[in-house]
Structure formats: C-alpha cells, structure tokens
C-alpha cells in the first residue's frame, strides 16, 4: 500500500531561492534592478532607450535583454548608446527565470553599475510568476493592445509594482476606454503607481524617470 507523504512546497521554490541569491549579489554591489514586463511590441526596448537618455547622466546603467531568438537587435540599440548590455536567449522559452539572470550577472562589472534594467521576454502570461531577484516589476501596457488586458491577463497585473501605459499619443485614433482599463487595474492591484506615457513624443517620461530614481533611493535607504 502506498503511503502518503505531505510535501506542501511551492513548485517554484528553487527559482525563488535563486532569485534571493541574485538579489543579495545585486545589493552587495549596490545595484538597483528592475524587471520590465510587457507583451511583444508594447514598447519595452523603446522605454529602456528613453530611460537611458534621461538617466545616463545621473546613474551608471546596464541592461539584460531577454529574447527568445538569437537576434541582438535590442541589445545592439542599447550598446550604441554606450551602455553595457548582455543578451540572454531563452531558446524559445517564454520568460526569463532566476537561473538565466544568475548566468548573466557575472558578465557585468557590477561595481560599475547603479541601475540594472532587465527586459523580459514579451509575454503577458507567465513572466510575473518567475522571480528574478530584481527589486521592482514594471509592466508596460500600450494603447493599441486594447483596454481589456487587465481582465484577460489578471495574473501579471497583480504581480507588478508600477504600470506604464505607453503610446498615449495614439488615443485619438484607437478605441481605448481609459476608465474601463483603469477600473480593471484598480481591482487587481489597488493604488498601483501608473504613468501614462508616449515613448514617441516623450510625454510622461520625466515622471517615470523621477519615480525610478526615487524608488532606487528608498530601496537603498531601506537597506541601511
């Protein structure tokens, strides 16, 4: 007769532990790290480039580019701006996990980095479930994707610390009910910090980069 053994262990426990190790490594080097989540085409790379343009004078930046394919289009754009970038290929996988970030980190001189931006794989389903060890999860929604995304992908809206609504310059041309969208967000993640932005016109991006600077500062104060 089989015997039942109680386990009650979170299935992603191993990943979570590695994520904690990553965070300890980052904090030992005084690096603040963010994880950028979004669907393909929402503007992750555009946001990163805009953030580099606004913060490169204040902080030393570095970027991890997660991609499913071996194309270095995104990493090349970052490196053109003189910012160190490491490309992580997931080999068709749909998210980055803590192991992948762990392997990417030694490729940087972390003592020369203040802010590490991790661009996750474009996907709204699972990346939020796989902790990396970054300090903040940032979600980008974009106007052309439609206003129903919080209702269709509740999991990712629950697991983030800030939300950018990108491509607001398209609001006059696209049916997007901001009120309906934000009602969904409010239920899933009450009081979520939200920045309506356009990476094309630059609107709203100053508020975003100010918030990011302040978030880094308060994380450092919290550790002291």
């Amino acid at each position: 007769m089989p015997t039942r053994v109680m386990v009650v262990e979170h299935i992603l426990n191993a990943n979570d532990q590695l994520a904690e190790e990553n965070q300890a490594l980052l904090e030992a080097a005084d690096v603040f790290a963010i994880n950028i989540l979004a669907s393909p085409g929402a503007g992750k790379t555009s946001l990163i480039l805009q953030t580099i343009d606004r913060l490169a004078g204040h902080l030393r930046l570095a970027v991890v580019e997660g991609d499913t394919a071996q194309v270095t289009i995104d990493a090349d754009k970052v490196m053109e701006r003189g910012i160190p970038a490491v490309q992580v290929n997931t080999g068709g996988g749909c998210h980055l996990d803590a192991v992948m970030l762990k392997m990417a980190l030694p490729q940087f001189d972390l003592s020369q980095v203040d802010l590490l931006i991790v661009e996750n794989v474009g996907n709204l389903i699972c990346p939020a479930n796989f902790k990396l060890g970054t300090h903040k999860n940032i979600l980008i929604a974009s106007v052309p994707e439609g206003d129903d995304k919080p209702y269709k992908y509740p999991g990712i809206y629950r697991g983030v610390d800030a939300l950018l609504i990108n491509k607001i310059d398209l609001l006059p041309y696209v049916p997007f009910n901001m009120d309906y969208f934000q009602r969904g967000v409010e239920v899933l993640n009450p009081g979520l910090v939200t920045f309506p932005v356009s990476c094309r016109t630059g609107e709203g991006l100053q508020a975003w980069s100010d918030w990011l600077l302040a978030a880094r500062q308060s994380a450092r104060v919290g550790r002291d």
Binding site: P2, R4, E9, R158, R183, V187
Partner: peptide
Amino acid sequence: LACPTCHSRRVEVAAGAEFTLEAIDI
C-alpha cells in the same frame, strides 16, 4: 471584477494563485 453584492471595487484575490506540490504517494 467589482463585488456583485455591494459593487465595491476594493477587493482582493482570495484564491486562485496556488502553485504547490501538496503530497506524494510512495
């Protein structure tokens, strides 16, 4: 997503995020 009874939007997820290996038979 609002409460069907009082229509409040101050709600939280009470179940559905589980992801656990509960037991094994050996």
